Simulated assay, not measured.
Amino acid sequence: MGYRYKQGGEKTLLLIHGNMTSSKHWDVFMESFDSDYTIYAPDLRGFGISTYNNPIDSLDGFEEDLKLFVDKLGLSKFDLMGWSTGGGVCMIFAADYSNYVDKLILLESVGTRGYPILKKDEKGKPIKGEFLKTKEEIAQDPVQVIP
């Protein structure tokens, strides 16, 4: 699991990126952020320089990776900031491992269930309130071209 690091003070901040991005998107933020903080910005599985040897089925897989990451580095109390998909990962992590997280910061975050994708009827119109729930359902959902 690849990550970016900025040495700082005794406070620790973890930055979790969004979908289709990587830790690279935190560079400007990390350069200008308060020097009282030591900052870690991991690349989620399959993003940046992190490998994707085992597929992810939900945000829970990213949460498990984050837990392994903080334990490997010996981090036990930190502030956690997530952007977009990273926000969903952070919320799940904070709920399951609240003893690790001092502050939770969300920036344009998705929910804990990820992106809501509506099922479609036989004409390709979205069905209100009915969501695709699994990777298999999403893969089988016909792609509709909007004229």
Rank of each mutant, 00 (worst) to 15 (best):
T38N: 01
N99D: 12
G124Q: 04
G86S: 10
I49E: 15
W83E: 02
D60T: 15
D65F: 09
G74S: 09
M30H: 05
D60F: 12
I127Y: 15
G2A: 13
P147F: 04
L118T: 09
L68K: 15
I138D: 11
N99M: 05
Y3T: 06
H17A: 11
L15V: 12
K72C: 15
P126S: 14
I117R: 14
L104N: 01
P142G: 07
K77P: 12
H17R: 09
L59K: 01
I39Q: 00
D141W: 01
P147H: 12
F47D: 00
F131T: 03
L107P: 03
L75Q: 07
V89T: 05
N54M: 14
D121I: 10
N53Q: 11
C90A: 08
I146M: 09
F131V: 08
V89N: 01
Q7F: 02
E63M: 02
L104F: 02
D121S: 14
F78P: 00
G111E: 11
E63W: 02
G48L: 12
V101S: 07
W26D: 03
F69V: 06
G86T: 05
L59M: 11
W26P: 06
A94W: 06
V143N: 07
R45K: 11
I92N: 01
L59C: 09
M30K: 01
S76Y: 12
L80S: 01
A94I: 05
S35H: 10
K125G: 05
F33D: 04
W83S: 06
E108Y: 05
L13K: 00
L14S: 06
L44G: 04
A95T: 15
V28R: 12
P116H: 08
L104T: 07
F78E: 00
P55R: 11
Y5A: 04
E137W: 09
E31Y: 13
G2K: 08
Y52S: 09
S109N: 00
L66A: 03
K103Y: 03
I16T: 09
S22L: 15
E122C: 14
N99V: 13
F78A: 01
Y97N: 06
T12W: 03
Y40N: 01
Y97M: 01
L132S: 11
L107E: 04
R4A: 13
K6F: 00
P126L: 14
G61M: 13
G61N: 14
F131L: 11
F69G: 03
G74F: 04
Y40Q: 01
I49G: 07
M1I: 14
L15A: 08
D43L: 04
N19A: 09
F47W: 00
L132A: 15
D65H: 07
S50Q: 06
E108F: 01
G82Y: 00
H17M: 15
F47G: 02
A95K: 11
V110D: 06
D79I: 02
S58C: 14
G111R: 03
R113H: 08
L15M: 08
K119C: 12
F33T: 05
I117W: 12
N53K: 15
D27L: 07
G111S: 05
V28F: 14
V28W: 08
F69Q: 08
K128V: 15
R113I: 09
Y100T: 07
F69P: 10
K24F: 13
S23C: 13
N53F: 04
V28C: 12
A41L: 00
F33V: 10
F93P: 02
E122V: 07
D27Y: 01
E64G: 13
D60H: 02
D57P: 12
